[in-house]
């Protein structure tokens, strides 16, 4: 093998990416657009003083995550801890990035999942792409993300979206395919149009599964924050990244703990929304 000429795969990819970066007219507006969403979230969270935002988050967890007293107390203490340790601003930034990545993933992922569920050909084509997106080491996305979107929050979001979107697509597809045949037949037998079938039957039936996918997506996006911090996406990830650079075990632990607390809150919230609220 050693005397075989290696394929110039890296060179090809470089050339392709080089060519793509010329497409400024696409990436410029896209960067701006994603930037607006992030600052929108930042602005929104900035309206409230920290104590009020804290209470709102505690209230939301209580309301949506099944009114569990223990969880609510944990969330209250956890957020107080983050505030106390001085990570509040970082946490808000992290939330903005994660929610932006989450929203973009849902807006793209759910329709793609629906499309997949309708055709075996589309499903067969997209599935390997999803496998690729998820198994390619997340660090690799940073390079083209920087090339197209520069340094900062936006490429961080883009890398997060690529890495985090697959579960939403997969679970949407799965959820729709799992709807029992008889229920689909019932909807068709009464003369539903394709859209009526989708919005009145398939999506409501698949809701729990789709929400499980969205939950996974948000968790994956959160897991990207440390990696994204390497290309300038600020927030809790940056704190961890710096602590690693300075061999600061205590500081790294503090910031890491803050990420864990945010993760638990987001996880319980999205799970709670996914569970049927009936009864």
């Amino acid at each position: 093998m050693s005397n075989m000429t290696p394929l110039p795969l890296a060179a090809w990819i470089d050339a392709f990416v080089e060519w793509l970066t010329q497409a400024e007219f696409i990436f410029g507006p896209l960067t701006d657009f994603i930037g607006y969403i992030i600052s929108g979230f930042e602005w929104f969270f900035g309206i409230f003083p920290p104590w009020l935002l804290l209470l709102i988050m505690v209230g939301l967890t209580f309301w949506f995550a099944g009114r569990k007293i223990g969880l609510t107390v944990f969330v209250l203490l956890g957020l107080l801890l983050i505030w106390n340790l001085g990570y509040w601003e970082d946490m808000v930034l992290t939330l903005a990035i994660v929610l932006t990545a989450g929203v973009i993933s849902i807006v793209i992922g759910v329709p793609v999942g629906i499309w997949m569920s309708r055709s075996p050909v589309v499903e067969g084509t997209i599935k390997p792409v999803l496998d690729f997106m998820q198994t390619m080491p997340a660090f690799v996305y940073l390079i083209p993300a920087v090339a197209f979107f520069g340094i900062g929050m936006v490429p961080g979001v883009v890398a997060s979206v690529i890495f985090a979107m697959p579960p939403t697509i997969r679970f949407t597809n799965l959820g729709i395919r799992q709807v029992p045949t008889e229920i689909i037949e019932a909807s068709e037998a009464f003369g539903s149009t394709g859209n009526q079938k989708l919005f009145k039957v398939q999506l409501p039936m698949a809701k729990t599964t789709i929400m499980a996918g969205i939950n996974q997506t948000i968790m994956l996006a959160l897991s990207m924050v440390v990696i994204a911090s390497m290309i300038g996406a600020d927030g809790l990830g940056t704190a961890v990244y710096f602590a690693v650079g300075r061999n600061d075990v205590g500081g790294g632990f503090e910031a890491g703990l803050a990420i864990v607390i945010v993760a638990i809150i987001l996880d319980r919230l999205t799970q709670g929304i996914g569970a049927s609220k009936r009864k």
């Binding site: 029992p180 008889e182 229920i183 037949e185 019932a186 909807s187 068709e188 037998a189 009464f190 003369g191 039957v201 409501p204 039936m205 809701k207 049927s276 009936r278």
Partner: peptide, 17 residues
Amino acid sequence: RREKMSMVFQQFGLFPF
């Protein structure tokens, strides 16, 4: 389907939600 024939299913085919 809307105006002339409707159907009843073995496993009922009701919408649970």
